[in-house]
Design a protein around this nucleic acid. Structure first.
Ligand code: MN
Ligand code: MN
Ligand code: ZN
Ligand code: ZN
Lengths: 142, 142
DNA sequence: TTCCTATTGAAAATCTTTTTCAATTATAAA
DNA sequence: TTTATAATTGAAAAAGATTTTCAATAGGAA
């Protein structure tokens, strides 16, 4: 999914395509790691210096609402966002460089059924996230 | 693990046992759901009105450091804390009342090995969390 | 082009968390 | 018990993060 399709999605939902939004979309769409609002602001201002931090918050809010980005929870903090993957995927995060990789293929059904039986909960959602070192970061001294 | 053993643990690590700490420990130790610093403050002040919010933050910090409590991440926010379970356990959360239940018995090893092979990551940690409705909340109209 | 209103950025307001600091108090030593 | 000392406290200030307000601007339908 390219950056143009995000703009189309915004437009189709009645949101206007402004310079501020284009700048924010360009940055977060192309990032391999999760970015905080302030990081998005700093990067996007290189191309569009008039940008306000408020517009970054407002654009991230809309992108999240349209499921184009998602918040990433980490021990260090939970304010960063990354492009969403399509379909049911989970996150694998490099503890050193922050690179985000999506994976699929978890089969938690047996576990969920068993926990559900044991606890009498009606389970409807799950969060699974793996942490480690990416190939590059294993090479360079950790 | 009772609330007295938390005080012992604090003491054994060189921390003094003060009224403020006792009040915070009493509240968070006995809670079935994750509490924010402000919620701890409000509850604990009922028994000890001189308590300051700063001391709540400072005590939570120490309890987390000693692994007696842990931060709970939820869609609505990530500032709340709950007593830690012993051993390797994961969280099951009621989306309605917030009740926290720990479970074990996840076997993610095959998945982790497979993802590790596919991505060349050295995977060292995982977060797994289930969400649903507890028995009570299923009965009462959701 | 014109018109309407969604959107903007600056500034202020609000919330949350941390730091500073003088007074107090837990604890170990006498 | 009393004393000495350093950890701890709560108030206040500071720092940070996010949201709200508002007058000016600019996107896009007509
Ligand atoms: Mn899954
Ligand atoms: Mn989180
Ligand atoms: Zn890495
Ligand atoms: Zn419930």
């Amino acid at each position: 999914m390219n950056s143009k399709s995000w703009l189309t999605a915004l437009s189709e939902h009645g949101y206007r395509l402004t310079e501020a939004r284009r700048a924010v979309v360009a940055i977060i769409h192309s990032s391999q790691r999760a970015l905080t609002p302030l990081e998005v602001y700093d990067s996007a201002r290189l191309a569009y210096p008039e940008l306000g931090l408020v517009s970054v918050y407002r654009t991230l809010e809309k992108l999240e609402e349209l499921n184009l980005i998602q918040r990433v929870h980490q021990p260090a903090g939970c304010q960063a966002f990354i492009s969403s993957a399509e379909g049911h995927k989970h996150l694998l995060l490099c503890k050193r460089c922050g690179q985000v990789t999506f994976f699929e293929g978890d089969d938690l059904e047996p576990l969920i059924k068993s926990i559900s039986r044991r606890t009498n909960y009606a389970i409807s959602e799950h969060w699974l996230q793996l942490f480690g070192l990416c190939e590059n970061c294993q090479k360079s001294g950790s």
